Each structure stands twice: as structure tokens, then as C-alpha cells.
Simulated assay, not measured.
Amino acid sequence: MPATLSHQVSGPPSADAPAVVLLGSLGSDRSMWDAQVRDLARDHVVIAVDHRGHGNSDVIPGPCTIADLSGDVLALLDTLGEGHVHVVGLSLGGAVAQWLAVHEPTRVRSAALLCTAARFGEPSGWADRAAAVREGGTAAVADAVV
């Protein structure tokens, strides 16, 4: 079952404006995209998203896969009535963007993949980073993210 994702939609209220989805890194929230939103929203509908368990999005206990995170994004796009989007993903968001481009190619107009990989390292490093964020908030990993 998809999580309800906290998000912000910015940009012109035109059905003709192309939509851009911004997907952040592990331990971040959508505020990381504020500078890009300001510029892109001049002529795009910009959808900045908090992944499940990030920002104000639902926390769903238990294991989570890239397919799960991608399903959350697809459910949000369906709710917003966005059929075709440009996707920008940083790190974890880049993995989600790759999944979307591979599994839903008719919905992805383009994908910008930033500081990401097709396969990430051992899960223990990511589990440690997630635990640090739960314990100390995003400030605990800010230096590593930057």
C-alpha cells in the first residue's frame, strides 16, 4: 500500500506547463530543492516530494524497497493528475527516478540522475545513516549529504 507523501506543487496554473518531480536523498526533505523550485516554477509545474518516512510524509514501519518508494510517487502523480513528468532524483531519489524510467517509461519524459547509482553499497551503511537521522534529525547527516 502506498504511503501518503508530503509534497509541494509550485508553478503556473497551466495545463500546458510541463511537470517536474524533485526526489531527494536519504535523510532529506523537500526543502533541499527550494532554490531549484524558485527557478523551475517560472515555467514548469514543480512537484517537490518527501519520500515516505521523510519530512511530513507517512512513516510505514517495516522494510521498504525502491519499488515501494516508486509506487508512492506514482500514487501521488495519479492523485495530482500528472501523467507524464520530468523526474530529477538525488541519491536515493535518483534510484527512484531510475526505477520509474525503467518500469513506467511512458510516464517519464526525462530523468536527471544526480549523485546516484544503479546499485548502492551494503545495506548496513544505509541502515546506520537512517538510524542517525532517526536519532539526531537531518542535521546528523547534513555534512555527508552535502
Rank of each mutant, 00 (worst) to 15 (best):
V88N: 00
H54L: 01
L26C: 02
L76A: 10
D58G: 04
L76Y: 05
L40R: 03
E122D: 14
L114I: 08
D68V: 10
D29L: 04
G71H: 04
R30C: 01
G71T: 05
S28T: 14
H51G: 03
D143P: 07
G83Q: 12
A117S: 05
S6K: 02
A75G: 05
A140F: 08
L113C: 05
D143A: 15
A117Y: 14
V85S: 07
T65M: 13
G125R: 07
D43I: 03
A97W: 03
G93M: 00
T116L: 06
V59M: 15
W126L: 11
H84P: 13
H51A: 07
L74V: 15
A101I: 09
Q98D: 03
D50C: 04
R129I: 03
V146T: 08
I47R: 09
W99A: 14
A3D: 04
V20I: 11
L113Y: 05
S124W: 11
G121V: 08
D29S: 10
L77T: 08
D72I: 02
G121D: 11
Q8R: 15
A19F: 07
E122M: 06
L23D: 02
S124K: 06
G81I: 03
A19S: 10
G81P: 01
G24Y: 00
L22M: 02
S10D: 11
T65E: 11
A144Y: 02
